[in-house]
Write a protein that binds this DNA or RNA. Structure first.
Length: 759
DNA sequence: TTTAGCTCAATTTTT
DNA sequence: TTGAGCTAAA
């Protein structure tokens, strides 16, 4: 066989997945098994070895981060660059299409603009814009927002959009009171959304799906275009994404069904947001003749960590037959700690971080703390701050979600698209210019009376500004000033760079001046964010305009705004530009959900208590399905760790101001006792004791290697001195070990009593 | 029109 | 317990 550097870098299974290019293929990729490596190699292989023109290749991911990484790696293998081609006027040629579901769909929507209901460039509504619009719809329809909360209706609408269900498909006669209102609101919401020339996240996918479904000619074009389809994190796809993919992979025009999906059913943790685990479990049924490749070798974690993870996840019934293994070293035992309460938990974790980082080879960036709920982060932050240890919360408040940034973005959106009533309403009185609720109510009332295309807030504003009898002379003057200001922005926009437009907006509105007047720490932080936003705009422009000849740059100013708005809607964090300083290594704090896809040498999995993790909704009986999702979450957490894994749980925890006595998480019992050391710090004065639990999993299943990991290890007993473990028996919390002490011969102990003496 | 007190709810989150 | 969002007073 000819030496091939692409294949040579892969293991046998990975290489198999790369080479099976024809027909449907499902790759079941365990945690840390080199899935991205396989995917990127496959794309490179198709282009470089199979001579597939790059533009025939499509790869979709869920996050920008994943898409960026994939582009990076494909680019490096093939030594090509991905010009962002934001001008989108040219043909899609030259590079594979790699992007998120949403960015790919938006590109299709823009190309097929005539098939959309929009009359001008559309803006993207995020969840809070969406909620605002739903509130206006609820009010317009005279629905009681106490009985039917806009939030619940929003969840309902988004749930339906995840399933690609349109309002007319809902038959009210079969539904309860809520569903009947939901149908009404959904119907009106869609109308108003489109009238605002706006689209929400769910609709981006649904609309694309409908266009492909309803227009065979268009469908055909995209099927011929995307001949090799790759889908990352397939276990997280929802119904709408599934249907969308089937439109592209249908192969009804003599095509080839070259669809390669990659995923891990054991890491499916987004059911609550519409992900349908059946998509991955049923792939072989949906695509008859599909080939299956399993990537089971883990390159990330120690033996002990992989064993623990495998034993936990094997308790799930909803999974495929897949077993992770590793050739890495056995490594350290897992470390389980019981502590008195959440405060003690934080103290323990931070002192361990101190201790390990003091030993030399590790810095703070090697540690991470995973919790089930965001509320748990506070204790850790308090102690870390007190100890002056650098830390960073991953996935907190997103940059573009900050109030001041959203305000500015709404000015931008209104300038681009004044029919966007939601954005207009948001900025109407920001900063305060004396336009209050009464006035807004009158404007909205007027808007409802206006006909057709004029039925929007902008038109209403114009009328009220000209006609003082609608409000009052004073108010009409204020409105006229506002309208005049926005018109000025719209007029200037095509002649200005974004950063210039930005400064014009800040100057004319006096936004920063108002914040200065406020003078609080919070206001100052806002000003700083606005400054960062300025830098970000300049970098954005430089990236886009830089490559163009100077004389062409000004010609692009008009488009700049639309492109920027689209990016800011689809991206949660701006690209880490040169402006953002590196703060050095820091401990990372995050929810278990945010930890997916990451890895750390040392992981602390905290709050492992029944009710908290697994999380249990008090008001309904726990379902096996929900527990399995929590177990997958636990599996994700464990498999993030490379070398050392801590598992902590508190005896008592304050939740919503109440003291709760907590039971250890059931997942702790599912980890073979021989893989962990256990230490009870919750009753420090008394000898260590573990809570005795009911029969563990291992009493009913064969578990030959239960104590294997501990035999041969040395420990230092406070009474008997140095000794070696020569034998073990029993299982779970009842493992007994025989220790051979140098001075006093052999003795038997319960493992949980002596595990902490391991050296 | 702004602000202070009150109620009410309360996993997980990317696009 | 915390916080966001909303109704009653300045």
């Amino acid at each position: 066989m000819v030496f091939d550097p692409i294949l040579a870098a892969l293991n046998e299974r990975q290489a198999e997945a790369v080479q099976r290019t024809a027909g449907p293929l499902i790759v079941l990729a365990g945690a840390g098994s080199g899935k991205t490596k396989m995917l990127t190699s496959r794309i490179a292989y198709l282009i470089d070895r199979c001579d597939v023109p790059a533009h025939h290749i499509l790869a979709v991911t869920f996050t920008n981060k994943a898409a960026g990484e994939m582009k990076d790696r494909v680019g490096r293998i093939l030594k090509i660059g991905f010009g962002s081609d934001p001008w989108s006027s040219g043909p899609w040629m030259g590079t594979p299409e790699i992007g998120t579901f949403h960015s790919v769909c938006l590109r299709i929507l823009r190309r097929e603009g005539v098939l959309t209901p929009f009359s001008r460039p559309f803006v993207i509504y995020d969840d809070s814009d969406q909620l605002s619009l739903i509130k206006t719809v609820v009010e317009k329809l005279g629905i009681d927002d106490k009985q039917f909360s806009p939030k619940a209706l929003q969840a309902g609408i988004n749930g339906l959009k995840c399933d690609a269900i349109e309002p007319h498909e809902l038959r009210p006669e079969h539904h309860n009171l809520f569903d009947r209102q939901l149908k009404r609101v959904y119907e009106q919401y869609q109308k108003d959304l489109f009238a605002n020339n706006a689209i929400d996240f769910g609709e981006i996918l649904c609309m694309t799906y409908r266009i492909l479904r309803d227009h065979p000619d268009v469908r055909r074009r995209y099927q011929e275009r995307f001949r090799y389809i790759h889908v990352d994190e397939y276990q997280d796809t929802n119904r709408a994404q599934y249907l969308l993919l089937s439109m592209l992979a249908k192969a009804e025009f003599g095509g080839h069904q070259n669809i390669c999906v990659v995923g891990d059913e054991d890491q499916s943790i987004y059911k609550w947001r519409g992900a349908d685990i059946r998509n991955i479990l049923d792939f072989e049924r949906d695509y008859p003749g599909a080939q299956v490749v399993k990537l089971e070798q883990n390159y990330r974690s120690s033996q002990n960590i992989i064993r623990a993870a495998s034993q936990v996840i094997r308790n799930n019934s909803q999974r495929k037959d897949k077993t992770l293994f590793t050739e890495n070293e056995e490594g350290e035992l897992l470390r389980r700690f019981q502590v008195a309460d959440e405060r003690a938990e934080a103290e323990l974790v931070v002192s361990e971080i101190r201790r390990l980082s003091g030993e030399g080879s590790r810095n703070y960036g090697d540690f991470s703390i995973f919790y089930r709920t965001n509320a748990q982060s506070r204790q850790f932050e308090d102690v870390l701050r007190r100890e002056k240890i650098a830390y960073q919360i991953v996935g907190g408040l997103r940059f573009y979600d900050r109030k001041e940034i959203k305000d500015v973005l709404c000015y931008f959106k209104a300038i681009l698209n004044p029919t966007d009533s939601i954005s207009l309403k948001r900025i109407l009185n920001v900063p305060a210019r004396g336009i209050g609720k009464t006035t807004i109510d009158k404007l909205e009332e007027l808007q409802l009376r206006l006909e057709g295309a004029d039925s929007n807030l902008w038109s209403a504003l114009g009328m009220a500004a000209r006609d003082p009898s609608i409000t009052s002379a004073a108010t009409a003057r204020k409105l006229a000033a506002f309208v005049g200001m926005i018109e000025k922005f719209m007029l200037e926009q095509p002649r200005l760079r974004l950063s210039e437009l930005y400064h014009l907006v800040l100057d004319e509105t006096g936004y920063v001046r108002e914040l200065r007047k406020e003078g609080t720490d919070e206001a100052l932080a806002r000003i700083e964010n606005l400054e960062e936003f300025d830098t970000l705009l300049q970098e954005f422009e430089e990236d886009l305009l830089g490559p163009l000849p100077v004389e062409d740059q000004a010609a692009r100013f008009r488009e700049l705004l639309a492109i920027f708005l689209e990016q800011s809607a689809l991206v949660s964090e701006p690209e880490p530009g040169k402006a953002v300083q590196d703060l050095g290594p820091s401990v990372k704090l995050m929810t278990l959900h945010s930890s997916k896809g990451l890895e750390f040498p040392v992981v602390f999995l905290v709050g492992m208590e029944e009710g908290l993790f697994p999380s249990i909704k008090g008001w309904e009986p726990e379902s096996e399905e929900d527990i399995e999702e929590e177990r997958r979450l636990c599996y994700v957490g464990i498999t993030r760790a490379r070398e050392i894994l801590y598992l902590t749980h508190a005896t008592m925890r304050r939740i919503w101001g109440n003291f709760n006595y907590q039971e250890p998480a059931r997942f702790l019992d599912e980890i073979p006792g021989g893989l962990v050391t256990y230490r009870d710090l919750s009753r420090a004065a008394r000898p260590m004791a573990a809570p005795v639990r009911s029969a563990s999993y291992f009493d009913e299943h064969d578990q030959r290697d239960e104590g294997d990991s501990i035999e041969g290890r040395w420990l230092e007993h406070p009474e008997y001195g140095r000794g070696k473990i020569v034998a073990s028996e029993g299982s779970g919390m009842e493992i007994r070990v025989t220790i051979d002490f140098a001075g006093s011969g052999r003795r038997k102990f319960l493992w949980r009593y002596v595990s902490a003496y391991l050296r």
